[in-house]
Each structure stands twice: as C-alpha cells, then as structure tokens.
Design a protein around this nucleic acid. Structure first.
Lengths: 207, 207
DNA sequence: CAGCTGACAGATTTCAAGTTTTGTCATTCG
DNA sequence: CGAATGACAAAACTTGAAATCTGTCAGCTG
C-alpha cells in the first residue's frame, strides 16, 4: 500500500478507530486483521505490534462501545432528585439506549451482541460500572432514609439482575414487542415498592 | 424394515416418544425424520401423515418436555401457606428444575435450549401456563390481604419478567456461577417487599 | 534503532460437487 | 377403504481441496 503512515504514527487508538469502522462495515464475521490494516494503510504485522491477538482487538472495540454509554449513566446517577427515581433512570437509560440501537440498526446491534458474547472481560467491566452507579445512588438513598437496604451493593446487583430482561442483549429478541416499555414499568413498580422504606408510598404513579 | 407395525398402530404419541428418544440420542442437529421413522420401523412418509413438517414434530417434542414441568408447578401454586411464599416457590421450582437439568446433562439441556429457541408456540404456551399459576396465587393473596396488587395478571408477569435471568434458558451461561441461588434470593427479597402490602414486613428473613 | 514489512507455517474458511434430507403423492397393502 | 410405502424433486447439508487468514519473526527502512 502506498498510503503508508497517513494520519500520524500508528497508535492503539487509531487502530481501534479503524477496527470499529471496519467491523461496522463488514460485520464481525467478515472482518479480518488484514482489512483493518488495509484501512490504515499498514501491514497486518503492524497491527499485531499493538494488539497481541485478534480477540484482544475485538474486545478492545467492544470495550469502547460499552464505555460510550458510561457518561450518560454517570450523569443520571449523579443527578438531582429522589434516589429511587434515579435508580429507575439509570436502569431505564441502560435499557432504552440498547433498545434504540437495536431498533435503529438491528444488523449492527446483532453483530455487537455476538461480539459481546465472547468478550467476557469488557462486559464484566461494564456490568461492574453500572452496578457501581446503582450502588452509589442506593447508598445515598439509604443515608437519606429514602431507600431501605441492609447492603446497597447487594441491592444494586438485585435490581440489575431483576431488569436483565430489559438490558441484556441475550434477550434482545423480546425487545421488538412494542409493550416492552410497559413491561419495564411494571417490573419497576414492584422493585420501587421493594426499595422504598415501609410506610412510604411511591409518588406520582397509581397502582 | 421388517419390524413393521411392532407396538400397535402408529399414533402421534408413539411418534413423539420415538422422536424424543432419537433427539436425546443423536441431538437436534443430527436427528432426521428418517431416523425417527427407523426407530419406529416405518417409512418416513408415515411420520408425515401425523406431523405436517419436521418443525411441527420438534415443536411437539419441546411441548412435551415443557409440560412435564407443569404438575409440580401447579402443585406448588395450589399448595398451603402464605401467598407470597407460594409465589416464591413457583419461581424457585421453575428456576431450580432448569438449573438441575442444565447441570446434570448440559449437553441435553443445550440441545433443548436450542430447540426451544425456534419453538415459539410451545414456549409461549409454557410461559402462559406459568403466568396463570402466578396469577392464581397473587389473586388469592390480594383477596386475603396478603399481597398488594391492582392487577394480579400484570403483577404476575412482572415477577416472571423480573426473574427471567433465573429461568430463561437464554441466560443459562450464568447459571454455572455457584452464587446463582444467592442472586435469586436477593432478587426475591426485593420482589417480596414490593408484593407485601405496606405495613407488613417479610417474616423469617432479616434485611 | 524503533517501527514497520512481508514471507511463512499452521489454522480456519470458502466454495462447488456430491450426498442426504425433506416433503409430496401416485401406488400398494391388508 | 384407510393406512402405509417408496420414488421423486427441491432444499439443505457434507466434504475436501483450494484459498484465505492468523500470528511470528528475520530483516528492511527512514
């Protein structure tokens, strides 16, 4: 290739950018390391200088995708308002973001979900991040007397698990149902009533 | 084959029995209609006389497998004791049964899960059955003042959805974690507190 | 001499030809 | 006469030889 070195020195970041684009264009099944190298105008040997294996490169791309969601989740977690409502918003944002992606670009989302299935490490990191956000909010809620919980971290994991159907890509086939947001609302009502201290009723919603 | 007609007339039930065995023996990928017919000592044309397509035959086998779980679920739902505890037992039985199958015969359970993925109709029927059991118990609990719910059916679906991670075969990869029953207990505590009427505390458990 | 290349071995994937399977139905069997 | 057969066409799978890809590394290049 004659495009050698166009765009500055070869960095992990540039490789990730190219890998991301290539994966989106060709899909995970058709993307080769040679494709990524070609997009950068380098030989595939150079890519291996920065990522030990193709699997590591793919994991790093998945990591990027997952981390792109983190700022808005953290913003919601650190926002104003009642603790329970912020817990709901974190879970809702997590789910809604994925539903939208899955609806707007189903092909890409399927590709992403397949990729993520193998990418244990970044997924664990993502789950950890979300659970940390939930734990923060719940701990604050407990301190303020807005939430009943003996152990915020355990409770955070429980609400995360209880809403798995709405944010775990493995369940994405059920997201096409238009009533999926109603299902979320109904699960949430139950969880909210479980979170609120005894004697406090949920506000702004009937039932 | 010379074994013609051994075992009485060819009925859907006998075909299902043979299909079940053959699927267990060879797995879903390797089982052909000819295999099933051979096990019965008939031609494959005879099988098509009772099931219009191979997919219908497979669905019927999945249906059998799922329905085998129903008596114990109904027994638990119709049992004695507090409504909330019976809701827990239905969900627990549903989950535990599947965990055990998945652990004791992982190959078969994977095969079953793959089969079930395509078998929309029997799975919907199974989910409906479980939700009906839960609805019964919750409605009774509401009548007795043990459970707070504006609409038992909606609440039943919500507790079913909230425990999807524990009974949906799509999530089976997470069932190997030994702490999975702890995760169930933590989700349940939250749901139970959401089900109980305000002013009532869960009994027999701290936190 | 740091960063990159490209030839290479072994692993994996593709593709086209050959085989098996599904589903139908005219015919046979009891 | 109803139930079962098996020959058949089309679709779906298997197979294995050829092509491509991954990961390494000795050497090149700026």
């Amino acid at each position: 290739m004659s495009t050698s070195n166009a765009g500055g020195p070869l960095t992990p970041e540039r490789i990730l950018e190219a890998a991301d684009e290539t994966l989106r264009r060709f899909g995970p099944a058709k993307t080769t390391v040679v494709d990524v190298a070609r997009a950068l105008g380098v030989s595939h040997g150079s890519v291996y200088r920065h990522f030990p294996t193709k699997a590591d490169l793919r994991d790093a791309v998945v990591d990027r995708w997952l981390q792109r969601m983190h700022p808005s989740l953290a913003a919601v977690a650190d926002g104003e308002g009642a603790a329970a409502e912020r817990v709901r918003l974190v879970l809702w944002t997590l789910a809604e973001t994925k539903w939208t992606q899955a609806r707007e670009d189903p092909e890409f989302f399927t590709a992403f979900a397949e990729l993520a299935e193998d990418a244990r490490t970044p997924v664990v990191a993502h789950v950890d991040f979300v659970v940390v956000q939930l734990t923060k909010v719940i701990a604050e809620g407990v301190a303020r007397g807005e939430i009943a919980s003996a152990d915020p971290k355990t409770t955070a994991l429980a609400v995360f698990d209880a809403t798995a159907k709405f944010h775990n890509p493995a369940a994405r086939s059920e997201w096409v149902r238009p009533a999926i947001d109603e299902a979320f609302a109904n699960v949430w009502r139950l969880l909210r009533d479980g979170l609120l201290p005894r004697g406090v009723r949920g506000v702004g919603e009937s039932g």
